[in-house]
Amino acid sequence: MPTILGQNQYGKAENRVVKITRDGDTHHIKDLNVSVALSGDMEEVHYSGSNANVLPTDTTKNTVYAFAKEYGIESAEQFGIHLARHFVTSQEPIHRARIRIEEYAWERIATSDGNSKFIGADEVKHSFVRQGQETRTTEITYDGTSWQVISGLKDLVVMNSTNSEFWGYVKDKYTTLKEAYDRILATQVAAQWRYNWTSDEERMPNWEKSYAQARKHMLQAFAETYSLSLQQTLYQMGSRIINSRSEIDEIRFSLPNKHHFLVDLEPFGLKNDNEVYFAADRPYGLIEATVLRDGVEPRIPVDMTNL
């Protein structure tokens, strides 16, 4: 049967680049995992094997490292914008570039007395520890005319040890779950938010501030919501970000419910007054939803969130 070529792209995935900025004795780290995907006039390489329009993936890798030196890494978003613009504007066959970036955060190692430096020494200025398992993410897409920037985070584990209930749900003959009026609520947040910036570079958001503020509002909403369901908490987290950050129009969450079940201590003659729990890693409830600014159409792909 005759066939035709459908959607396609190519590039170099997971280029690990670490940029050290030395400000005298004080160093700053940007640690990124950068994936490049390019598309355009690529029919012939698939049909006949002609590489006439193909920029080697090795070249895209080299570009990532060269740009880290040439432009520095002010933020994951800004770095991705530099790369996407370069590939689309420098290579005529390339019509669209997608740059996906994960950023791994580092923090300075504190001294035992809590000060910012050792006695008469400068080691702390270039000593760091990775911050937990949380990873910052961004995806930049450029088609030569407009931009789409979707940023977020994954593996952010949060917990409320009280102020959470779950009751009044549908019950049938297979329901065994007991209603809870004081429970642990914990989840591992994966979130992506879409910026409404598309072209005017003079109005480009401050990416570092925007990320920090979105994360702050997300955590504050989680902590401050008296939750009757994880869905309610999700909506409050998204609403807080949308209402607080005018540059963000849409946010998608994937929240696995990290269940904590009270352990039955009665066989041991002990009363468990909401003190001892069994943390179950699977199976888990998975709550997913998108929160949008009113009047905005959803554009974040459903399959972007990968736990």
Rank of each mutant, 00 (worst) to 15 (best):
T135D: 01
Y195F: 11
G269F: 10
D172W: 07
S239D: 11
G144Q: 05
Y195V: 00
E44V: 09
D122E: 12
S210E: 08
P267L: 11
N15E: 12
T176F: 04
M304S: 13
T305K: 12
S164F: 07
H82Y: 07
L265W: 14
Y174R: 08
N243G: 06
S48H: 14
M218A: 06
V263Y: 09
E224W: 08
S48E: 11
S35W: 02
F87L: 09
T141Q: 06
T89Y: 04
G168S: 10
Q236T: 09
I150T: 12
T26Q: 07
G269Q: 05
V124E: 13
R245H: 12
E74K: 14
Y195P: 02
F79V: 04
E201I: 05
R194S: 05
D143R: 04
N306D: 07
M42P: 09
R203A: 14
K154M: 04
K209V: 06
M304I: 13
V17L: 10
M237P: 01
D281H: 14
I4P: 02
L5V: 12
D273W: 10
E250L: 09
N53F: 03
N62A: 07
N51D: 11
E102V: 02
V124T: 15
K19R: 14
N15G: 07
V36F: 03
Y65V: 06
S112A: 13
E77P: 02
R96V: 13
R245V: 14
F118A: 00
S239K: 11
G152S: 06
S246V: 05
K271W: 06
D31R: 03
K30H: 10
A221L: 01
Q133L: 05
K61S: 09
E14I: 04
P56A: 05
H86Y: 15
V302D: 11
N53C: 14
P298L: 04
F118D: 03
Y195Q: 02
N15I: 09
E123G: 08
F268Y: 15
P56W: 04
Y226W: 14
M204Q: 12
R215H: 13
G295P: 07
A68K: 06
D294A: 13
V296C: 00
F79N: 04
S48P: 06
F253L: 03
K61R: 15
Q213P: 03
S210K: 02
E266Y: 14
H126N: 14
Y174W: 14
Q220T: 06
R299E: 13
Y10T: 10
I242W: 07
A289T: 01
T21G: 05
V263C: 06
R252P: 00
